[in-house]
Write a protein that binds this DNA or RNA. Sequence first.
RNA 1: GGAAGGAUGGCUGAGUGGUUGAAAGCGAUCGCCUCGAAAGCGAUUAGGCCGUAAGGCCUCGCAGGUUCAAAUCCUGCUCCUUCCGCCA
Length: 422
Amino acid sequence: MLDIKFIRENPDLVKQSLKNRNLKIDLDALIKLDDYRRKILLELEDLRAKQNKANDEINALLKAKKDTKDKISSMKEISEKTKKLESELKIADSKLGELLLNIPNVPHESVPVGDPTKKKIVRSWGELPKKDFKPATHIELAQRLDIIDFNRAAKITGSNFILYKGWGAKLERALINFMLDFHTQKHGYTEIFPPFLVNRASMTGTGQLPKLEEDMYRLKDDDLFLIPTAEVPVTNIFRDDILDEEKLPIYYTAYTACFRREAGSYGKDTKGLIRVHQFDKVEMVKFVRPEASYDELEKLVADAEDILRALGLPYRVAVLSTQDLSFSASKCYDLEAYASGVDCWLEVSSCSNFESFQARRANIKFRKKDTKKLDFVHTLNGSGVALARTVAAILENYQQKDGSIIIPEALRPYLDGQEKIK
RNA sequence: GGAAGGAUGGCUGAGUGGUUGAAAGCGAUCGCCUCGAAAGCGAUUAGGCCGUAAGGCCUCGCAGGUUCAAAUCCUGCUCCUUCCGCCA
């Protein structure tokens, strides 16, 4: 979340950022509430100071074995006033806290302003595959090769779930291992295997709650949530912690399944692997010094790109515009892999800098080496990369005229040295 | 799921109503000593809010309550440990 002090001191900047995100939030009401809160706080502190003083006096009287009756009875009134103010303050605090939790991060100045069409392609890599036949979609290919069974997944669970089978299941597992090995061996990440269920505090820490509760799978009896991304458990590793500056930057990578209700997105990309309720993803998460976070973001994107290059998937990199930016992010690059069957650029990675937004919510600090003072870390995360769509791109781009799939070389060591799925 | 015990600063741990934001020890940092180090000695060593500052206020797992006054008493909750049960 944003620092209330920052909002108070930069109201116009925050208002402009809300406008750029196309959100209508009454910031003046929030500032007014904060004024009220601070006024009460001042009064209350004054009363408490009186109480503390009186306590010392009563104590001194007791020590001197003198009568304390008058003093105590005169303090009763103040005690009641204090209680009243305390409850008023509590109400104001919780209202303000709620409002603050719903203010999104301020986009970085380099982020294009406007609706999602304003996103900017900053670079691309690879040749679009040219085939002398009409490429099939991953759905057709998967069914023909009997490596994904959409119908039985729907029977077992519901629509938009995936059941991988045979070489499909193996391919999925190979991709996970390949990506984890790549990031740990070549990019210096430490591997994490976190819980797939998290509590409310964790979901609030990374910014999914309170705004996006209806997009999450929730276990009502236990008030736990299925993670929508490994970002949630991995970022929350350091919730309420103070890190040493020497330990920064910290790079973590984790495979997890990701669960998304995708409420309200019916009818959009609902076929095949493009939009599903459960998918696998290898995620990268960074904890860095504030000055370093934008350089780290570039490196993070490069780390994700390396995966797509190693897999030989043509892709492009886009900076998202202010209205496309997620709630907690200040800047985000999307990686889009081209898939020839559906003839679409598929979003397979989102790499974001959250600056101190998540760190403030989750209370993740570090102690500066020189001044010994505390400051919030900056957090970043990026997919490296999301699997279902990547599988679609691999199947479609590597398909042969006979319907078989050439396995990208980088994956062969993970697939018994096999060169083809047929 | 049942029973018992516990949660205090970076760590260990004292503290059962008022001078305790908190003893003591460890660790850490700085200084003295030393050629250098160890040992020893001395000092410093929680975070947040308000304030230019002086200073004030808050915080002893969380939330309520009792009281003039709560780390300390009461209630609820969360988490941890141990034992039993169940279980991959």
